[in-house]
Structures are given as structure tokens and as C-alpha cells.
Amino acid sequence: MAFESKEHAKQYWRKNLKLMGWLLAVWFIVSYGFGILLVDVLNNISLGGFKLGFWFAQQGSIFTFLVLIIVYIVGMNRIDREFNVQDD
């Protein structure tokens, strides 16, 4: 293992889990929250010709998923470099 110590490895894993947890929270809120549970409330707001809840269910959630993966890639690369375990 390329980590300096066991403690380092633990820290790396904790940071990884924290990033993952935050992103999954957003994933849940946007798709299940905005697109399903709160859809009727959000449908009272309009976004151009879309009702907002409907937009999240058919368009917005997919864009959000993409952004989440991009943030994850950037975030993990940063953590990898911080602990010097990046791929060459």
C-alpha cells in the first residue's frame, strides 16, 4: 500500500465516504424528492413552458446525475493526490 500509515489509509477512506454520502444525498433529494415526492408542490412553479416538478422528473434529474458524477471524479482525483495514491 502506498499510504504512509494505517491512520492515513483510514483518513482516505473516511474522506471518500463523506464525499460519496453528500453526493448520494443530492441524488436522492433531486430524483425521489423533487421528481416524485414533492412533484405536486413543485408543479405550481413554472420554468419556461415546464411545470418544475415535471421538469425535474423528465429532464432535471438526468442533468443532475451527470453533474454528480463529474463532481465525484474531480473530488476523488483531488483526494487521491492529497494522499499520493493517484494512478499515474
Binding site: 460519496m20 430524483s31 421528481g35 422528473a57 423528465q58
Partner: peptide, 21 residues
């Protein structure tokens, strides 16, 4: 109509799980 959203979200949201977990 709106019910079709299950396929749109269902078949893309899985990639977040794939990428992260």
C-alpha cells in the same frame, strides 16, 4: 406522460450508484 418518468430517472440514476459505489 408523467408516469413515463420512472424509465427516465430509473435507467439513468443507476449510473450514479455505479460510478460512486
Amino acid at each position: 406522460g408523467y408516469d413515463g418518468s420512472v424509465y427516465l430517472m430509473g435507467w439513468t440514476g443507476g449510473y450514479v450508484l455505479l460510478a460512486l459505489c
